[in-house]
Design a protein around this nucleic acid. Structure first.
Lengths: 207, 207
DNA sequence: ATTGACACGTGAAGC
DNA sequence: TGCTTCACGTGTCAA
């Protein structure tokens, strides 16, 4: 059964004549003899393979992949890039402020009440505590001087450093802010607790 | 059957679709009316468009693009991701070193007030309260004398006793520490509330 | 049987 | 001209 499809040979500039419609009913072109094949067949094959390879490489680079689909690979790559961009931004901001505060000891504090002062008076002191709860779960407690946007920046920094927050709660009192959080560990390191503690100290130092 | 207009992809130069497929061998299960035409045609079209969209979004996210090709878009995305990863690593290292170099060693250790004394003066008393919320969920409230590491040890003990913490918050005031937590029950016991309360009392007694 | 994802071969544009 | 890239419709395989 072979029918000759509409408009096959002629140059026929198809304006709308792409037979994409309904009853196309084009079956044509048997394979009798040798209807010469397209010349770009191999080229096309190479192109496809190259694209597949790139996609594979991309997938290898992205840590989390929800699915193996081509589309989802790209999708995951997109969100990963966004995450990385955000990380860089946060880290840069942290570094910048840290440098600034290190150069100038005390910035002009024009707040009404200095949280640091209040904290000192209350006998509350900043601290970071990290304990291993279970497997790769860590419980962290952070007390630091309350600052405007401090919590947000803490969260951003922790995210930037790869912490996966499972549960978090925050409360403020007497100029101090207490954040207790259950997080998933970042590395499979041995002394993860100590490393995490150092990291957190570093973070709240930059806030 | 409508067909989605080929809808210029924005980036890629639009091209008219051709429809020249060769019909493979064995086909058609019916001939009476008009039935053939593979049914996944629209699905395939959607899939292609989705992939194109993702690729477009990816390209929009990558700052430098050497070429508009599909393959090169992915290629550029790959190198961009590598660059970002390197950036994050460098920044983290920088921040870490900075913290190490600026060890002020301040951290004044001064625990002047005795929490127990303060608590007694404030009229706050230790207590444990357990109520059943829903099914096997319990809500617990614990007030006890604030001690260094007390909360951590409470968490450790509760974990050790098999409590599964759903949500926890802690606050301290006037020498006392209040922990309110939503936990999943440990046993399917009948008088689970009472049993849990005894367990918690025992725990904070040992802290 | 139905659905979703893929690779394939091919005509059409652009350079 | 040739060469590259693209979208298309389709068959096929797996869940």
């Amino acid at each position: 059964m072979e029918y000759v499809g509409s408009a096959l040979d002629g140059l026929f500039i198809t304006k709308e004549g792409n037979s994409r419609g309904r009853v196309g009913r084009r079956r044509y072109s048997n394979d009798d003899g040798t209807e010469y094949k397209s010349k770009n067949l191999h080229a096309e094959r190479r192109r496809r393979q190259k694209l597949s390879d790139r996609l594979l490489a991309l997938r290898a680079l992205v840590p989390i992949i929800t699915n193996m689909n081509k589309a989802t690979i790209i999708e995951d790559a997109i969100s990963y890039i966004e995450e990385l961009q955000n990380n860089v931004e946060v880290l840069q901001g942290l570094l910048y402020e840290m440098e600034a505060s290190s150069e100038e000891g005390a910035l002009p504090r024009s707040e009404e009440i200095d949280p640091a002062e209040e904290m000192r008076k209350s006998g509350i002191q900043a601290e970071v505590e990290v304990t291993q709860i279970d497997g790769n779960k860590l419980w962290i407690k952070i007390i630091f001087e309350k600052k405007r946007g401090g919590f947000t920046r803490l969260m951003e920094a922790m995210t930037a450093f790869g912490f996966e927050l499972i549960d978090t709660s925050v409360t403020t009192s007497k100029g101090a802010m207490l954040v207790s959080s259950c997080v998933k560990g970042i590395h499979g390191e041995i002394n993860e607790v100590q490393r995490t503690k150092e990291l957190l100290l570093q973070i709240i130092n930059g806030i």
